[in-house]
Each structure stands twice: as structure tokens, then as C-alpha cells.
Design a protein around this nucleic acid. Structure first.
Lengths: 144, 144
DNA sequence: TATTATTCCGATAACGGAGTCCGAAATCCG
DNA sequence: CGGATTTCGGACTCCGTTATCGGAATAATA
């Protein structure tokens, strides 16, 4: 039942992708994003707060305020978003939780697992918001 | 913080690996296994119940009773254990939770994610208890 | 009778998800 | 200029689910 990414990370991705499809430096109220994506405003607000904290988003209070990408979408990797929300140590460590498993005494699955970890990591580190946003526009995918 | 496998699955793997290192058809009390692995007896009992239910283990009540592998260790894939404990639908579906993502309208990460899913799956389906148990003996790895 | 699995009925804690409330900043309008 | 409005910021609480663990009664076997 559990997904690879938490709902928080998924919401962060979707919201950021939504902003990446808009003209840069356009502030969008969090409330609007929540409505577009069909998710809880309060929950999203908390997630986006974490992103602004990390300098991924910038925010602006008052009328016509909101949040916007702090940097060009092509400079933001998906991994950056996920780390900001869920922390960095997702899926590290021995697959079977063996205590001594490491480089010198690897568990039987160690090598295969390391390769797979790397390929999971690559999915998120090698892809930028801008790239994904463009493909979403091309394919006319909806975020909600 | 969350691992790829649940603790239940990990305990099922460790307990089964432990049994696979013993002579076949030797019944071991669940209490002994729990002690060896340093985990909760009750928790382990519930997990091993699921495995006996699936026909992976056989059990025997009364003095000198316990649980044992129902089949040769080389005939039991790791995947079978994990499915019995956690269910089969771990990590399926769109990585970003996009609603329309599928074969006809794949999300940008769809293809990469499918490959990674396959390699995760391969780790567990292509490996048997017997194979792992032998390597654990060779390398003198402890399960606790 | 002693031993051991099986079963049921929980308790507890952790976590993810969602909501409330108030404060602070920026803007708008009278 | 000053209050009202809009919006983010942050702390706190709450709820439902799942993970983890425990107790006690039951059944089967030696």
C-alpha cells in the first residue's frame, strides 16, 4: 500500500510542477494551488513553507502575494524537493536490516540493492522541474 | 526514515533465513527464533503465522514442536515471503501519483520508474532462501 | 501434565494527513 | 494616514491508520 514517495513529497512535486508551467516570478496564492490540485490547503501550506525555508520557493505576503519558484525551473532537481520535504535518508541502509551489513561485510543482497538505490536516486537527481514541466505541457498531462 | 521493506517483512526474511541454515525438517520453536534474532516473540509469532498460512512454513504444536520450512529452501523466493507478509502491491502506480498516468499517457518519469520497479522486483524474485542462506554461511554473517 | 503453536483481544506509540488559531507583513481603500 | 484585507509564517492540536508489542485463553501433542 505504501508508495515510494510520501504524499507530502508528491504534493511538493505537483505544486512545484504547476508553478513551473506558469510564467516565472509569478506569485500564486497557496490557496489557489491547493484548489487546482484538489488537495488540503493547510497541508499544502505546511509543505510549501518547508520549500521556501530551503530557498526553493520565494514567498510574498499581502494582496497579490503567494509563492513562486525562487530559481529557474531548470536549476531545481526533483531530488531537492523530496529531500526538503522528507529528509535525505529515505531508503538507505541494509535492505534486510542486518546489523553488520556494510562494505566490508555486505549482506547477500547488498550489491544489487546498491545499484537499485543508485537508479532510484538517479531518477530524481538527474531530472529538473523545468524538464518535467515541459514534458507535461507537451503531453497535456493534468496535475489533478 | 522508512525502509523499502516493512519490519514485518524483514523479520520474516531473517527468521526464514535462520531456518534455512538449519537441517531441513527441523522444527524450531518460535520462541527460540525470536530470542536468536532479538525481536519480540509475539510480533514474530504473528508474522510466522501468516507464512504457515501461505504454506511457506509448516508448524507443529506440542513439545518439540515449532515451525520449519515447508519446502526446500531453494524453492522459496524472497518475494514469496514479502508478498505473504506485506501483500503484493508494494510500489506500484505512478511515482508522482498523477491520476491519468498509464501506458497511453505516461508521466515523464514513467519509463524510468518502470525499469527501476522491475529491478527492485528482480532482487526478490530471482533470489531464493537457500541461495541467501548459503552466502550467509559463507560470509559468516550474523542475523542478529 | 507440560509444552508449544494458535487465536483473539487488546495497548501503545509513531506517523501521515489535515485543521485551528494567531501573528506578521504587504497592500488596498476610504 | 489608518484601518481593512489579503496572504504567508508558525505553533499547536486532532484524527485515523499502521507498526509494534503484550496477555490470556485454547488446542494439540508428547
Amino acid at each position: 500500500m505504501s508508495s515510494l514517495l510520501s504524499k507530502s513529497s508528491i504534493y511538493a512535486l505537483r505544486a512545484s510542477l504547476y508553478m513551473a508551467t506558469l510564467p516565472p516570478d509569478e506569485y500564486v496564492p497557496v490557496h489557489d494551488i491547493a484548489e487546482k490540485l484538489g488537495i488540503s490547503f493547510h497541508f499544502l501550506a505546511k509543505i510549501l513553507q518547508a520549500l521556501t525555508h530551503r530557498g526553493i520557493l520565494k514567498s510574498f505576503r499581502g494582496p497579490h502575494g503567494g509563492v513562486a519558484l525562487a530559481r529557474p525551473a531548470d536549476d531545481v532537481s526533483l531530488n531537492e524537493l523530496i529531500e526538503a520535504v522528507d529528509g535525505q535518508q529515505r531508503f538507505e541502509g541494509c535492505l534486510m536490516g542486518l546489523p553488520g551489513c556494510g562494505v566490508e561485510k555486505p549482506c547477500p543482497l547488498h550489491e544489487q540493492w546498491e545499484k537499485t538505490q543508485a537508479s532510484i536516486s538517479a531518477i530524481f537527481t538527474c531530472s529538473t522541474l523545468g524538464e518535467q514541466a515541459r514534458r507535461i505541457k507537451e503531453l497535456d498531462l493534468r496535475l489533478h
